[in-house]
Amino acid sequence: MEDKVHLIKPTVVLQNEYLEFYHEWKASGEDMIPWVIEKDPADFAGMVQFLLKNEKGIDLPEGWVRDSTYWLVNENNKVLGVVNIRHGLTERLFYCGGHIGYGIRPSERRKGYATKILAYSLEKTREIGIDKVLVVCDADNIGSARTITKNGGVEDVSFIEKDGNVVKRFWIELKD
């Protein structure tokens, strides 16, 4: 039977569940995506407060845009993934960050959760008032490119970062 999953805002109530997610990802040695999961959870309440303040636009660093973070959880409150939705695009985000960054914990990949987290995230972007959404992935991340196209992504011109990494850019137009 497939898990019932949904997005929730970060909460101190799920500290243990989030820490399991975080430590599994850390132990994998992989890049932590989206960027918000790189944030050290040692001061867990402070981390959650930081994320909620970003959504309200409070104390944002210079040049940052508001962003909303959600956790993808199952019926047992296991944190399966995290998504960060930017409410606008800076020049850098336009080329290599996009509106939505998401990641699924290593042990839960290839189960359809990436497709679901992106689909649910698109609903959230619509609520924010964004109807043309930019989602990006590294060119060698075939699974992510498939996930984006499954959710309506249309490939645009790629961007080459200073280190030579190629970023594929996709636009998703949200229809009423």
Rank of each mutant, 00 (worst) to 15 (best):
M1C: 13
V5T: 11
V5L: 06
L7K: 05
L7N: 03
I8L: 03
K9Y: 12
P10L: 08
T11Y: 04
L14R: 15
Q15I: 00
N16L: 00
L19Q: 13
E20M: 11
E20N: 07
Y22T: 14
Y22F: 15
Y22M: 11
H23Y: 15
E24A: 01
E24K: 13
K26D: 11
A27N: 14
S28H: 10
S28N: 10
S28R: 12
E30I: 00
E30R: 15
I33M: 09
W35E: 03
V36A: 10
I37Y: 09
I37Q: 09
P41L: 00
D43N: 15
D43S: 07
D43L: 02
F44Y: 14
A45H: 11
A45D: 15
G46H: 11
V48T: 12
V48Q: 09
L51N: 05
L51I: 01
K53S: 04
E55L: 08
E55G: 10
D59E: 14
D59T: 01
R66Y: 07
R66Q: 13
R66L: 15
D67W: 10
Y70T: 02
Y70G: 02
L72S: 01
V73Y: 08
V73W: 05
E75W: 06
N76A: 14
V79C: 10
G81C: 08
V82N: 11
N84H: 09
N84A: 04
I85P: 02
H87Y: 07
H87N: 01
G88A: 12
E91A: 14
E91F: 09
R92Q: 15
L93V: 09
G97Y: 00
G97C: 03
G97R: 00
G98V: 01
G98I: 01
G98P: 12
I100W: 02
G101E: 05
G103P: 15
G103L: 07
R109Y: 07
R109W: 09
R110S: 09
A114I: 09
T115Y: 05
T115H: 11
I117H: 06
L118W: 03
L118C: 04
S121R: 00
S121K: 02
L122Y: 01
L122V: 04
K124V: 13
T125V: 12
T125K: 04
T125G: 06
R126L: 07
E127P: 03
E127I: 04
G129K: 10
I130F: 04
D131W: 15
D131E: 10
K132P: 02
V135M: 02
V136P: 13
C137W: 09
C137M: 05
D138Y: 06
A139I: 09
A139E: 12
A139R: 14
D140V: 06
I142H: 12
S144E: 02
S144F: 02
A145W: 01
R146W: 01
R146T: 14
T147M: 04
I148C: 03
T149F: 04
T149W: 05
T149L: 01
K150L: 02
K150Q: 06
K150W: 02
N151P: 15
N151R: 10
N151C: 11
G152R: 01
V154Y: 12
E155F: 08
V157K: 10
S158A: 13
I160K: 12
E161F: 08
D163I: 02
G164F: 03
G164W: 08
N165C: 14
V167D: 04
V167R: 00
V167G: 07
K168P: 00
F170L: 01
W171Y: 13
W171S: 00
W171C: 01
I172C: 00
E173C: 08
E173G: 07
K175E: 11
K175I: 06
D176P: 15
